[in-house]
């Protein structure tokens, strides 16, 4: 019995150390990416703009249809639920207040973050994991091409650029969906809806949402890359780490969201 407790303790200790090591790896990768983005040109090893643009297409443009569909649905859902619950107080007209704030500050960044984590975070982990197994990462190293510069930095740039853009788009679509339903249900005109929205939603709220989304983009990239580099043992290993990367990035996004909201509402 005592031995078993000891075993558990040891295992817990090991995974705690491994977790901290992963944090460290994330910090190192982030620092190295920034280093290559700034210094790369001077060392004749620039981060390729065309690679970053190709990643932007993949991360951003190709995600637009799914993000539009999800955002429209969620916008309508928010309007339905908002009107339903406010009807208890006879305050249906106030639905715009709730929706405007929550979409721009929370739902836009969160839904975009989760979708990007599922789409891009997982593909990043799978791509890097496969490259590791097929020795493509080694091949880069022995060619004198730094893998962080060649793979991680473009991915990071594309995420930092595209996740806020997608978030902005998602918020607009959500508000459109909600407005459309409110128009049908409460007979509010589009002009009146937009009027109320601009009255309620301040530019600070928009920045709050976009700022968060930049953070989510960085988190998703680092989690994807770390899980990719930890892949071992063939195709099964790639699958395992891909799943792990999605789960961890979604958790990281939600926890960060809470912390960000707490800090931002204090000041």
């Amino acid at each position: 019995m005592r031995e078993r407790v000891g075993d558990h303790m040891e295992r817990m200790g090991r995974s705690a150390v491994a977790g901290i090591a992963e944090f460290g790896l994330g910090a190192v990768l982030f620092a190295q990416s920034i280093y290559w983005i700034i210094i790369g040109h001077r060392r004749a090893q620039p981060v390729r703009l065309d690679a970053a643009i190709a990643r932007c297409m993949e991360v951003g443009i190709h995600a637009v249809p799914i993000i539009t569909l999800m955002s429209l649905t969620i916008g309508i859902m928010l309007a339905i639920q908002g009107i339903y619950s406010l009807r208890v107080f006879g305050a249906e007209e106030q639905v715009v207040l709730g929706i405007g704030m929550s979409v721009v500050r929370e739902f836009g960044p969160l839904i975009t973050g989760i979708l990007v984590a599922g789409r891009t975070g997982s593909s990043l982990a799978a791509r890097i994991g496969t490259m590791r197994i097929s020795q493509e990462i080694d091949a880069l190293s022995v060619m004198g091409i730094n893998p962080v510069r060649y793979i991680v930095a473009p991915a990071l740039i594309s995420m930092v650029v595209m996740v806020p853009v997608l978030t902005f788009w998602s918020s607009i679509v959500m508000l459109t969906g909600a407005g459309w339903y409110i128009g049908i249900d409460l007979g509010m005109s589009a002009a009146a809806y937009i009027d109320r929205l601009t009255e309620i939603v301040k530019i600070g709220d928009v920045w709050h949402g976009l700022g968060k989304s930049v953070l989510f983009g960085i988190l998703i990239t680092l989690v994807g890359v770390i899980n990719g580099t930890l892949v071992s043992g063939g195709a099964e290993g790639v699958g395992k780490m891909t799943t792990r990367s999605v789960v961890i990035s979604i958790c990281a996004i939600i926890v960060t969201d809470m912390i960000f909201a707490f800090i931002a509402t204090r000041s």
Partner: peptide, 12 residues
Amino acid sequence: MGVAFQGGALFS
């Protein structure tokens, strides 16, 4: 130095 890896390690 040039290296030819076992599986080729060509970028897919």
